[in-house]
Design a protein around this nucleic acid. Structure first.
Lengths: 291, 291
DNA sequence: CCATATATCTGACTATAGTCAGGAAAAACA
DNA sequence: TGTTTTTCCTGACTATAGTCAGATATATGG
């Protein structure tokens, strides 16, 4: 392989040029880039001003000016946060939502064009971008509770089932027909569902449901290919165990398949022990852990 | 797969943030970014000012000011191009070379740190970056003649030999011991050597040497993994055929191995026909084409 | 209650990027 | 040869990003 560092710097130049083009593509709607970057971070339901400032690394004075300018344009409204009245919350007006949608469409079109440029290698391109984005976002990874009926959880579970079908010989697609009738059991007060976010993309999930008195069952641990090799599965397991503890459980169980060797190695390394079967195919390994 | 466009946009955000950090890392030496971008594009042996301006997309007035400012600092000297005295050529002074080396070191350190962050997936990261950079740079790809003894050609040939060893069962590493004693035959006036550049990284090569009177032999066609699937091999073959025509050859020959099926398919599709063996192992396919 | 810290806002300021019009010199063209 | 085009330069200008100090209102911890 030629010098890896030289290759990385070529990448930097290529992407900087592309990102520059991306930035200027956000112009042409008569608004400076800084204001646009703020605008597109405001969610319709309202976003904490400090959060935006922090994400964009802006000076508070500059941020304030951007907000005033967007307000003058009638794209956002700001109100004080009732929970902490020093803070302010920015909310999109209908005009603002339309404007954000327009910027979204521009970005979407650009992105689609870039992917199209890859031709037959589009899938590889997206996978490569995923890997890089996940590595760069690695420190910003956040694990948050999620609604088991939400779109992101459904997407994670679908990815999990696809993975099972690909790797477990005994698994067939029709074993996992979403939507899941049992999704309610992954909710409070007796269940839980966690998703790991890299930026706004879910890259891992895990769920917990009541099994039998003081025993809960861990289900559907999944980590996206781009996020593997960084100890995320271990973090997810540790997070769901904490949830279980807080819900008052004393024992955890899980079933899995011997084809999923890394997962089993992780379980063994973190205090899980084999037990007698308590479910059927496609599982062929059953484990337990005291809390 | 989750929405590809959403993933690409996450990538954009991650990389824009990183590129922003990269840009500011070029600060801290008391010089504005624009001037630095110009400075690091000046080669010690001299670079055409218009070329720099074109690559960076700068206004001629702005460019002029950057040059004056770098001159005042004693980092570069400008002289009129003797071939066209409207044009100017910028050259690094010794102080300038030292300064560029310092910026290089900063960039190198940053790049190394990023690669290190990928841990066990460093190779995958570099491959992903290569793929993206090559796709983004695709329109800027340049095929230029190269010195067969140069570092870049040696690197290409080494990559070619590695590929052969990996794919051809009969090939062993010791069959291809660089440096190549026959490199001189790939030079003018009877031979040629072409390299395709993506930015400053060689991504493909092909060579030509005299064989027998009006017949020349095409050797060492190689395309980097990141640049495949875009018709580059075809372009390289077409370029080397043009070289051969200009050198007055009437026939081309080549030997290859049946394990390299895409290459053979390309040859068949572009007018090459099978002929009797004229070399030994590891070759097992021999072809010819009239010009 | 007070002292201190935090979040935001405002006004004044600087630095940098970028634009534009016009001029001088050289090259290309008819 | 004269005209047009190209290349670079300069000065004047604008827009944007970003910094800084101080003011105000609120929260937090004693």
């Amino acid at each position: 392989m030629l010098d890896a560092v030289a290759r990385l710097r070529r990448f930097n130049r290529a992407v900087t040029r592309e990102a520059g083009a991306l930035d200027t593509s956000f112009l042409g709607r008569g608004r400076p880039l800084g204001a646009v970057r703020v605008l597109v971070m405001v969610r319709p339901e309202g976003t904490d001003v400090a959060l935006i400032r922090d994400r964009l690394g802006l000076d508070s004075g500059l941020m304030s000016r951007f907000l005033r300018s967007l307000e003058r344009e009638g794209l956002i409204e700001t109100a004080t946060d009732p929970a902490d009245r020093r803070r302010r919350i920015a909310r999109l007006t209908p005009a603002g939502e339309a404007e954000v949608a327009a910027y979204d469409a521009i970005g979407h079109a650009r992105a689609a064009r870039l992917i199209a440029r890859a031709g037959t290698r589009a899938n590889e391109l997206v996978a490569a971008m995923d890997l890089i984005a996940t590595l760069l976002n690695r420190d910003q990874l956040e694990i948050r509770p999620a609604d088991p009926d939400s779109l992101e959880v459904t997407a994670c579970w679908q990815a999990y089932f696809d993975e099972l079908v690909a790797r477990v010989p005994a698994a067939r697609p029709d074993m996992f027909a979403l939507p899941d009738p049992g999704a309610a059991s992954y909710r409070a007060p007796r269940g839980a569902c966690l998703v790991a976010w890299s930026d706004d993309l879910p890259v891992a999930c895990v769920a917990l449901r009541p099994l039998d008195g003081p025993t809960a069952e861990v289900k559907r641990l999944w980590v996206d290919a781009s996020a593997r090799g960084q100890g995320l599965a271990r973090r997810m397991m540790s997070a769901i165990e904490n949830e279980a503890r807080q819900l008052g459980y004393q024992w955890l169980r899980l079933d899995t398949n011997s084809a999923l060797s890394e997962a089993i190695a992780l379980y063994r390394a973190t205090g899980w022990t084999d037990i007698a079967p308590y479910t059927g195919a496609p599982a062929d390994v059953w484990m337990e852990k005291p809390l």
